[in-house]
C-alpha cells in the first residue's frame, strides 16, 4: 500500500468515527486504522473525507459494516463461534472473496470482568477463532492480521451485562487496500 492510500484510509476511519452513531462505536468500533476498528495507533491525526460508500452498494465498505455485520460475539471466557457468528463470518467471507483488494485487521476484545493480561490472551483467542474460520472459507491468511485489545477498547461502557455481551467480540476491520 502506498503512503497516500494508507493516509486516506486512516482519515476515512476518522471520518467514520466522527459521523458514527451516538451510542459510541457502533459499527466499526471507533478507531482509526482503517474503516472502523478499535485501533489507537500512532498514525492518528489529520482531517479529510473518506468514501465508505453507500450501504446499499454491496461492494461498499459501509455495506460490509452495516449490512453484513463486521463483528461476532462470544460468551463469557469462550472463543467458540456461535451459529449466528458463523453465519456472519460466512457472509463476511463471501464479501471479502469478492472484494480482494482489502486487507483485514481482526480485532479481539473481552469484557471488563477479567484481569488485563488474561483478557489480551482471550481477545487473541477470539480473533484467531474468527480469522481461522475466514481462512476456512477461502479468505487468504496473507490479507489478515490479528490484534487483541483485551478489555481496553469496549464498544460500550456501562458495567452491566448488556455492555459486557457486546464487548466480547471479534471485529473484522477493513484495514486498507492491498497491492
Amino acid at each position: 500500500m502506498t503512503l497516500t492510500s494508507k493516509a486516506l484510509l486512516v482519515l476515512a476511519g476518522l471520518a467514520l468515527a466522527a459521523c458514527n452513531n451516538p451510542r459510541g462505536g457502533g459499527f466499526g468500533g471507533g478507531g482509526s486504522d482503517g474503516f472502523g476498528g478499535a485501533n489507537d495507533g500512532f498514525y492518528d491525526g489529520g482531517i479529510s473525507t473518506g468514501n465508505l460508500g453507500d450501504p446499499n452498494d454491496p461492494r461498499s465498505v459501509a455495506h460490509f459494516q452495516q449490512r453484513i455485520g463486521d463483528r461476532v460475539f462470544f460468551t463469557v471466557d469462550s472463543s467458540s463461534l456461535s451459529a449466528e457468528g458463523r453465519a456472519t463470518l460466512d457472509a463476511q467471507a463471501r464479501w471479502l472473496n469478492a472484494n480482494t483488494q482489502y486487507s483485514i485487521v481482526m480485532e479481539g476484545h473481552a469484557d471488563e470482568r477479567g484481569t488485563r493480561d488474561y483478557n489480551i490472551a482471550l481477545g487473541e483467542r477470539r480473533a484467531n477463532a474468527a480469522m481461522q474460520y475466514l481462512i476456512g472459507q477461502g479468505v487468504s491468511a496473507n490479507r489478515m492480521r490479528v490484534v487483541s485489545y483485551g478489555k481496553d477498547r469496549p464498544v460500550e461502557a456501562c458495567a452491566a451485562q448488556r455492555c459486557w455481551d457486546i464487548n466480547r467480540r471479534a471485529v473484522t476491520a477493513i484495514a486498507g487496500v492491498t497491492g
Partner: peptide
C-alpha cells in the same frame, strides 16, 4: 511496558 504504537501489542 506494553505499547500499541505499532498497531499490535
Amino acid at each position: 511496558y506494553t505499547t500499541y504504537e505499532t498497531g499490535t501489542p
